[in-house]
Simulated assay, not measured.
Amino acid sequence: MIKKIGILTSGGDSQGMNSAVSGVIKYAQAQGLETYIIKDGYLGLYNNWIEKVDSFFADGIISRGGTAAGSARFPEFQEEEIREKAIKNLKDKKIEALVVIGGDGSYKGAQRLSEMGINCIALPGTIDNDISSSEQTIGFDTALNIIVDSIDRIRDTSQSHSRCTIIEVMGRHCGDLALYGGIAGGADIVSIGGNPLSEEDIIEKVTKLKGIVRSVVVVVSEHLYDSVHELAKKVQEASGFETRASVLGHIQRGGKPTAMDRFRAFTMGIRAVELILDGKSGLALGNVGEEIVDYPILEALEIPRKSRKKLWTQFNNLNIRRIK
């Protein structure tokens, strides 16, 4: 019978990670288990930064953004001897199971630990929404709301000064934040990973809108262009629209999680403990609607992302008709 559970957050922080940690702690404590957080993810696991926590700790973090447990990049965890030392640290404290909250890199670490005898359950903590085994990852909803709020604010000043503004959002090669945020925020042009517009396409579309609308909002995923500030200069020169670039950056990671991120994360935390008590390991949790589902970690990582091309094309066609 497992008596102690460890919890770590790894990779980029996302709103709702604390809610997931809280769910694990409160349910595990209700089952009579001891709970421990590992500070700074896999780095802390290697360095034995392990701290016992209780329900009072869980109560204090459920509504906070970021991760109270801390996070750090630690690529050295791929090395077997590094993992062996980390496992020794767990065994010295008689911690037999681990809940890992993070993105795909964190999942791979959890899989390796499972293969080495530590019961691991992984939860999808990333604002990018790029873990396809879950319809919405922990943090996505909060980051999306921040983006929409930012678009609304930027449009106000763009409209006041008759400007075009290019807004770069996070998401790496997954364009969900840009696409969902662009649509919800009423953007005029959206360019996403998987369906990027060329610089020439953006310049052409903005140029056609000049004289038809007072302001233009362009939303793009990060890493699509060498520099959105340079792109803004090119757009202004070609279109005649005064153009600015705004990189939202890490503001998208901060702030209190939304109610849905808290709810989803907390209930996933409870489910993780249930699976551990059932003797399960090497599983990744996700959601399909309100249902919490689980997959073997390797299977979860191999599920292809659903194409957003149809939705992106429909949105793009609305604005094509507008500027014909």
Rank of each mutant, 00 (worst) to 15 (best):
T165F: 10
S246A: 14
Q111E: 15
I203W: 01
A110V: 03
I270G: 02
V190R: 03
S191Y: 06
L179V: 04
I154L: 15
E80I: 12
G211K: 04
D54T: 04
S10N: 09
F241H: 01
G269Y: 00
T243E: 04
D156E: 13
D188W: 01
A300S: 09
S162T: 11
S132Y: 06
I62C: 04
T35A: 11
R322S: 15
L248R: 05
I202F: 06
V216P: 02
K256L: 13
K91D: 12
A72V: 03
E274Q: 12
L197V: 06
G181H: 00
F140T: 07
K306C: 10
H250P: 03
K94P: 05
G105N: 09
G240A: 10
K233F: 03
A30W: 06
I138W: 00
Y180N: 13
G32T: 08
G139Q: 03
I297Q: 02
Q78V: 15
D152G: 06
R321V: 15
S221R: 01
V148Q: 07
I323C: 11
A272L: 04
L231D: 02
L177K: 03
R253M: 12
A187N: 00
N47L: 13
R305P: 11
S246M: 11
G171T: 09
P296G: 09
E291C: 06
T142E: 09
E81C: 07
A58P: 04
A187V: 01
M170H: 00
Q159T: 14
K210R: 15
I61D: 03
I5R: 02
G255F: 02
K306E: 15
L248D: 07
I50M: 09
D176Q: 08
R322G: 14
Q252W: 01
D130R: 05
I37D: 07
N145Q: 12
T142V: 07
F315Q: 07
D294Q: 13
F266D: 01
V148E: 05
D152Q: 09
I251S: 14
Q78G: 13
S14W: 04
A187T: 02
E168R: 00
S160L: 11
G171Y: 01
G44W: 02
K208N: 12
S114P: 03
R321I: 14
T67W: 07
R321A: 15
S227D: 12
H223G: 12
R321C: 13
D261I: 05
Q29F: 11
T165L: 06
G32V: 05
T157E: 06
S307Y: 07
W312Y: 13
I251K: 09
P296D: 12
A232I: 01
T313K: 11
A265H: 00
V148L: 07
H223A: 15
Y36H: 07
I121P: 00
E81Y: 12
A86G: 12
I5M: 08
